[in-house]
């Protein structure tokens, strides 16, 4: 799923136009944060990862090849930033994920539905914890961010077959985890 930021946007961005960068941030901030949150399970870390990703974009935008898929390139940066963050955190566990932030579990609604959503989220989190980083990324990019399989292959730098395999395994895990829900 490509996001159209208007004609000539990539040129403006590559030329270092501040307004273009701001437009990019406004378009992608929720996506970057959401994906980072899925990896880190922590709002402060999610913001940190999303900012690190935007800073990388800001600094390396000149290396973006004209005609390449901007969406895939951006997601590649945020996925790598999230994975780097997790690897660093495994060495310096200052902010370990401890379930989900209850105050962020979702919009205030009836308590039963809220509890159900939290339970579901925990089960899916558990299933996603059991798959590899790439499998998790493939699932989230397809399911939550609507990237097509080719784009996911570009983001992860793997073949289309590998992406299908990642999706197969992640769906199986989720299926197993939530079979009694």
């Amino acid at each position: 799923m490509s996001i159209n930021l208007g004609p000539g946007f990539e040129d403006r961005l590559s030329a270092g136009e501040p307004a273009a960068f701001r437009e990019l941030v406004e378009t992608y901030k929720r996506k970057f944060y959401g994906l980072a949150y899925e990896f880190t399970r922590n709002s402060a870390d999610a913001e940190d990862v999303s900012q690190v990703a935007f800073i990388k974009v800001f600094r390396s935008i000149k290396t973006f090849k004209k005609g390449a898929n901007l969406n895939s390139w951006l997601y590649r940066i945020v996925v790598n930033a999230a994975i780097d963050h997790l690897r660093k955190r495994s060495f310096f566990p200052s902010s370990l994920p401890g379930g989900i932030d209850v105050e962020q579990a979702g919009p205030a609604e009836d308590p039963a539905r809220r509890a159900e959503a939290i339970l579901l989220r925990e089960k899916i989190d558990r299933a996603l914890e059991a798959v590899s980083e790439r499998e998790k990324a493939a699932f989230l990019l397809r399911h939550d961010h609507g990237l097509d399989l080719k784009e996911i292959a570009e983001v992860l730098g793997v073949s289309l077959g590998a992406v299908k395999s990642y999706l197969f395994r992640s769906v199986r895990k989720i299926q197993k985890e939530i079979q009694y829900v």
Binding site: E47, Q104, Q179
Partner: peptide, 25 residues
């Protein structure tokens, strides 16, 4: 399983967070 995965809650830090995002970045 996919439908249920789609129904899981997604955190939203709130409008104030998003309003200040660009300034913090």
């Amino acid at each position: 399983a996919l439908h249920l995965a789609g129904r899981r809650s997604r955190p939203d830090p709130g409008q104030a967070f998003w309003d200040g995002y660009w300034d913090r970045l």
